[in-house]
Write a protein that binds this DNA or RNA. Structure first.
Lengths: 218, 218
DNA sequence: TAGATTGTTAATCGATTAACAATC
DNA sequence: TAGATTGTTAATCGATTAACAATC
């Protein structure tokens, strides 16, 4: 099947399917209909069937979908069995949090190095991964065939870091910095996170619910 | 104007506008056209004008928009001058990272307490905010009129934590746990973050670019 | 077989883009 | 005034939902 023209909305829902199917499997439920799955996903049966059919006919008429089979199909579609080599740059608060918190190997990655410029923490480890000098990052990425980077450096260092990594062959960026990685890196895959944006939209929605925002207009 | 029916897509773009306008202001640029702004936003002039017009006519024909004025309008629309009292629950890796990393007071919040159940860290501080015993969270939230919670607890503790907080009057949740906060809390405003989902979609997109995923199908 | 539920096409809805008259 | 650029309406595009024949 042709995966070229699958919409971004569908892709964004795949991890959700995956999560809920994993839960169902843990509960030993081994079949589910698009209707039931849509209740869990808080979408519609139509959407579930449309989504899954982008990748193939995983269901059986009159029966529904096999939970373990569907879960595995989605894992394969996402490529979770991969181990893309990844580095994390910037072992400050958020970087350390991310490095220690994420289950990279269940998500298609292997964290092979952490980099920082703070001499005091060089040589330390987070989850058995060493913190190394950021000056050596370029060589390290080339030597180890690193494909992905998780950016947790300050904004001021962001552009330079991305350039260095990109030139060292890194083509996938999960970017927590406030620097916006735009279209300057043609064949790169980028996700700009912007945690602050989330808090701001939450704030807006809270004002809305509270009906307070009128005061602001005066 | 009626803000009831402004689409979620528009709201989600507001923080982006705000960020870029802040940058422009820092560069002492004080006017901008929808065309130029759309280049920065990587959208279209039409969309910029549509978006801004949801909230009022901030522009001037033949001139464009005043950068400082527009920036301030958006800050007001988002309600960034607010100081919603907020607590963070779960001072593990990611919780500590978030607590130390975010500039809450510039985003409409004031972090007034951090809660955990690990006795060893109780009494410690992160950015001058004390880590307190989670057993006291309900009383604390009532007494201090807390409206928002940032959830960084393990999945197993998530539901109980949300219930407790909701009953103590907290109606806004920024949820980093793997527990999905659904429609069970009618008047609550919720953002489920799911960092893992982002990494999974990134992985998919990387497979796509690399053209590798065919192997998985065999 | 009858009931259930898929895969898929068609209809609807919402969001984005284009166009242009109004006006600074 | 002429040029630029908005605010706003209309056209397009894409994504979601509904419908239903196919079939297990």
């Amino acid at each position: 099947m042709n995966r070229e023209n699958i919409s971004k909305s569908v892709i964004r829902r795949l991890p959700r399917y995956y999560r809920f199917l994993t839960e169902l499997e843990e509960k030993n439920i081994d079949r589910i209909s698009s209707g039931k799955l849509s209740e869990i996903m808080r979408s519609t049966a139509s959407q579930v069937r449309q989504d899954l059919n982008c990748f193939g006919g995983f269901g059986h008429q009159g029966y529904g979908y096999s939970v373990p089979k569907l879960r595995e199909e989605i894992a394969n579609i996402l490529g979770l069995n991969r181990h893309y080599k990844a580095v994390l740059v910037g072992a400050g608060h958020i970087g350390t949090g991310i490095a220690a918190h994420m289950n990279f190997d269940k998500l298609g990655y292997e964290l092979v190095g952490i980099f920082d410029n703070n001499e005091e923490i060089l040589g330390a480890h987070i989850n058995k991964v060493e913190i190394m000098d950021v000056d050596n990052i370029s060589k390290f990425c080339r030597d180890n065939n690193v494909s992905a980077a998780f950016l947790c450096v300050p904004r001021s260092a962001a552009k330079k870091t991305v350039d260095t990594l990109y030139n060292a062959g890194v083509k996938c960026f999960w970017n927590f910095t406030h620097y916006f990685i735009g279209g300057d890196y043609p064949d790169a895959v980028v996700e700009n996170v912007h945690l602050s944006d989330m808090l701001m939209t939450l704030c807006y929605r809270m004002n809305e619910v509270n009906g307070d925002y009128e005061h602001e207009d005066e």
